[in-house]
Simulated assay, not measured.
Amino acid sequence: MKIRVYYEDTDVGGVVYHSNYLNFCERARSQLFFDAGRSPILEGGHFVAKHIEADYLKSAKFGELLEVKTHLVKIKNASFTLLQQIFRDDEKVFEMTIDLVYLDFEGNMSKIPSSEKAFLSDLQ
């Protein structure tokens, strides 16, 4: 997914504020569902972040066009791990792994529905 860096994404020096890289990745994860005609909020529950490891490699700046790439690392019955990388042209500026778990609407960890598991498996 391509993302333009706007002024609201930056600090006073025009550099992307650190938490906005997480926002860019969140948008890209949601967009994966939207592009497939799905919603990230499912009939029986939703996914929540459990653990994130992030590496800030280079600074992105106001006006730049970035691309977020998302790949499935592993999938289990109730959780999955994604690798998300942000590039400026061919240069990687940010990388993170995120563990997401599936919760029912009562807040209990639950098995990922089989249709969603199949969809997620295609992200490899």
Rank of each mutant, 00 (worst) to 15 (best):
L32Q: 05
L32I: 05
F33L: 01
F33W: 05
F34W: 15
D35Y: 03
D35C: 09
D35W: 03
D35I: 07
D35R: 07
D35V: 07
A36D: 12
G37H: 11
G37Q: 09
G37S: 14
G37P: 09
G37R: 10
R38D: 06
R38F: 05
R38H: 09
S39F: 04
S39W: 03
P40G: 11
P40Q: 15
I41W: 03
I41Q: 03
I41E: 02
I41A: 03
L42F: 13
L42T: 14
L42C: 12
E43Q: 12
E43W: 00
E43N: 12
G44H: 11
G45E: 04
G45W: 01
H46L: 14
H46A: 13
H46M: 14
F47W: 05
F47N: 02
F47A: 03
V48D: 08
A49V: 14
A49M: 10
K50F: 07
H51C: 00
H51R: 14
H51S: 07
H51G: 00
I52E: 07
I52S: 12
I52L: 12
E53Q: 15
E53I: 14
E53K: 15
A54P: 15
A54R: 14
A54K: 14
A54E: 12
D55E: 10
D55K: 12
D55Y: 01
Y56V: 01
Y56T: 01
Y56C: 01
L57D: 04
L57G: 06
L57W: 10
K58S: 03
K58H: 11
S59E: 14
S59K: 12
S59V: 09
A60I: 01
A60L: 02
K61N: 03
K61I: 01
F62N: 09
F62S: 02
F62Q: 07
F62Y: 12
G63C: 05
G63I: 07
G63N: 08
G63F: 00
G63A: 06
E64Q: 15
L65H: 02
L65G: 04
L65E: 13
L65D: 10
L65S: 11
L65T: 13
L66R: 13
L66T: 11
L66A: 07
L66G: 09
E67I: 00
V68I: 12
V68K: 08
V68Q: 06
V68F: 04
V68Y: 04
K69E: 02
K69C: 03
K69W: 01
K69F: 01
K69I: 01
T70G: 06
T70K: 03
T70Q: 05
H71L: 14
H71E: 13
H71F: 15
H71A: 13
L72G: 12
L72D: 05
L72K: 10
V73N: 13
V73I: 13
K74L: 09
K74E: 15
K74M: 08
I75Q: 11
I75T: 06
I75R: 05
I75N: 07
I75F: 02
I75V: 14
K76W: 07
K76N: 06
K76P: 00
N77D: 14
N77I: 00
N77H: 02
N77P: 04
N77G: 13
A78Y: 07
S79W: 00
S79F: 04
F80M: 06
F80N: 02
F80K: 04
